[in-house]
């Protein structure tokens, strides 16, 4: 196991300890029972987004694309608006969280498979066409949800808005068990794909010549990515640039092409960013900031840097 992975894991363990232990007052057992499930959710979301982004970038053959940039967060927005439109704000707000989670995760997964499948399913992956299609899809989803939003009650629209941003402060605890189960299943599939992903990173022709069933692996990876991203989005809401940030950090820290190293690194780094960030905000800054805003700001900056610095392909 590479030494850097151990260091990252140690840093994450430290951050977890700080998250659980800092500023404990009164009955520690009670406080821990509140904090532990939130910690689990942060780690889960980190692992899901980190792995999904690394996988997505490998099969897309590009380090700038992420599922979110390809229109996924716009799809989530459309889904939220559509749900409120169909069921009414009251209906959505009073819906059993488990049911809402299942509905959201299911619809998102279907949508993600359709979206990414169309984008990546062609025999030749044309990057420019793919980015353009992603952007066009994103605009389409945003316009559609804007259109639907105009037809619903402004008060109900507040419910849409509330759920359209990532919320790391208040994770729905009752959903963590089911989200963990689904994510761990998907992560297990991702781990099984690790060697094939290494080969896929060489490009389609090399992968076929080396005996990797390209189409099957592509579809399997896409389904896994869709599951990971959908579950984490349904749990905490959409994060646009977080995956990009984490995947870039993982590649930078490990400098290794093996997914057996990259995926754990991305998962650990994502967990570290979320847990350490949330600890600082909750314990040191007294909830005066929102983690998703900071992460998106840093990730957005990185996105610009990557685009500007990128040599011609």
């Amino acid at each position: 196991m590479p030494a850097r992975l151990v260091w990252i894991a140690a840093a994450l363990a430290l951050a977890c300890a700080a998250f659980l232990g800092l500023g404990l007052r009164g009955d520690p057992g009670f406080a821990l029972s509140l904090r532990a499930p939130r910690l689990a959710a942060l780690l889960l979301v980190g692992a899901a987004i980190g792995c999904a982004t690394v996988m997505f970038q490998t099969i897309a053959g590009n380090r700038i694309l992420t599922p979110s940039i390809m229109g996924f967060d716009a799809l989530f927005g459309l889904l939220q608006t559509g749900l409120v439109f169909a069921l009414g704000g009251f209906g959505v707000a009073t819906m059993a969280p488990q049911l809402r989670f299942a509905l959201e995760a299911g619809l998102l997964m279907g949508g993600a498979l359709l979206l990414f499948g169309t984008l990546l399913g062609g025999r030749r992956v044309d990057l420019h066409r793919m980015i353009l299609t992603g952007i066009v899809c994103g605009v389409l989803f945003r316009s559609l949800s804007g259109f639907v939003a105009r037809m619903i009650d402004p008060n109900e629209y507040a419910i849409v808005q509330g759920s359209s941003f990532a919320r790391f402060n208040a994770v729905p605890i009752e959903l963590i068990a089911i989200a963990a189960l689904l994510s761990l299943l998907a992560l297990a599939v991702a781990w099984r794909l690790r060697h094939r992903l290494d080969v896929m990173a060489l490009g389609r022709d090399h992968a076929v010549s080396l005996g990797v069933d390209h189409r099957r692996t592509l579809m399997l990876a896409l389904a896994t990515i869709a599951a990971l991203v959908s579950v984490s989005t349904a749990l905490v809401g959409p994060v646009t640039f977080f995956g990009l940030l984490v995947s870039a950090l993982a590649h930078l820290a490990m400098r290794d092409h093996r997914h057996a190293v990259l995926m754990p690194a991305a998962a650990l780094i994502a967990g570290l960013v979320l847990v350490a960030g949330q600890t600082v905000i909750e314990r040191l800054l007294g909830w005066s900031l929102t983690l998703s805003v900071i992460v998106e700001f840093a990730g957005g900056l990185l996105f610009l840097v990557l685009i500007l610095r990128r040599p011609a392909p």
């Binding site: 053959g61 590009n62 060489l202 490009g203 022709d205 090399h206 010549s209 092409h257 392909p313």
Partner: peptide, 13 residues
């Protein structure tokens, strides 16, 4: 096995 002409390499290895 086959090696095609002008196959780019996506990965950094």
């Amino acid at each position: 096995s086959i090696l095609r002409q002008d196959t780019g390499l996506a990965a950094r290895l």
